[in-house]
């Protein structure tokens, strides 16, 4: 039977792991390679690295980081942040990334999803959606949550699936950093209507939040950052808990 996946996310700035709350108040959370190795040893099912470094010269640091991670880590990992075109994807895939995650550039140019899928396969494209509940609608945001768009989360997810995305990484900005649980409604709606896997992100604070996520939605994976980085919940504790609740876990 296919297992539900637990995915630690590492936000990377200038080669270090950082963690913010509601996309601001960024704190240092350690060396990414060391953290990645620890998570892999503890039973993480995949890893996601999101680079929030803005400048071009720092991109080289990211590629070096990807190479190091690929050498050391024996589980799949996704790299995202600042990917604008096929060349950016090629550099990261050659460095050893299994998948790339795109967000703002796909909103600007949805064709990029198809282009990546055609060249590297659907499984290589994770479409990240940052969304915020405003006036009764889930509005899509880009640029690390700073820019609103006219898009609604569900319609954008459906379009991305048509364009050839392999997975959706859905982050609720309302929940991110609050530790009050995942955004169940929108996760449920999108995971029910799409035929590709959905990774739920934003709001994980305790083991029960993952139980609720997997029991109440069709999400294939749950992602968290802060609770793992700062040691509030360890991956083995979380996985053992979910197993006792009869959720299929590796």
């Amino acid at each position: 039977m296919l297992k539900k996946r637990i995915i630690p996310c590492l936000d990377i700035r200038n080669g270090r792991t950082v963690k913010g709350t509601n996309f601001i108040n960024i704190k240092d959370a350690g060396d990414p390679v060391e953290l990645a190795r620890r998570y892999a040893n503890e039973g993480a099912d995949e890893l996601i690295f999101l680079d929030i470094t803005a400048t071009v010269e720092k991109r080289k640091t990211l590629v070096e980081l990807v190479e190091k991670v690929a050498k050391e880590i024996n589980i799949p990992f996704t790299v995202g942040g600042g990917i604008n075109n096929l060349e950016d994807v090629e550099v990261l895939v050659k460095a050893g990334a299994d998948k790339v995650s795109i967000n703002s550039s796909a909103v600007r140019n949805p064709q990029l999803i198809s282009d990546i899928a055609n060249q590297f396969g659907n499984q290589c494209v994770v479409l990240a959606i940052d969304t915020k509940f405003i006036n009764n609608e889930w509005v899509v945001f880009t640029h690390g949550g700073r820019t609103s768009t006219p898009l609604k989360a569900l319609e954008w997810a459906l379009q991305a699936e048509k364009q050839g995305a392999g997975e959706i990484l859905l982050t609720s900005m309302n929940n991110d950093g609050t530790r009050e649980g995942f955004a169940l409604n929108i996760t449920k709606e999108i995971s029910n209507q799409l035929s590709i896997p959905v990774i739920a992100s934003g709001g994980a604070g305790k083991v029960e939040h993952f139980e609720t996520l997997f029991n109440q939605t069709e999400a294939s994976a749950g992602l968290a950052a802060g609770i793992f980085h700062f040691g509030d919940v360890s991956i083995p504790t979380l996985k053992n808990y979910l197993k006792t609740k009869n959720i299929l876990i590796r």
Binding site: R5, N122, I196, P197, S220, A221, R250
Partner: peptide
């Protein structure tokens, strides 16, 4: 066949 989510992604025995 698209009965469940495709691609089949993740850990399976």
């Amino acid at each position: 066949p698209p009965i469940k989510k495709v691609p089949h992604i993740g850990w399976n025995n």
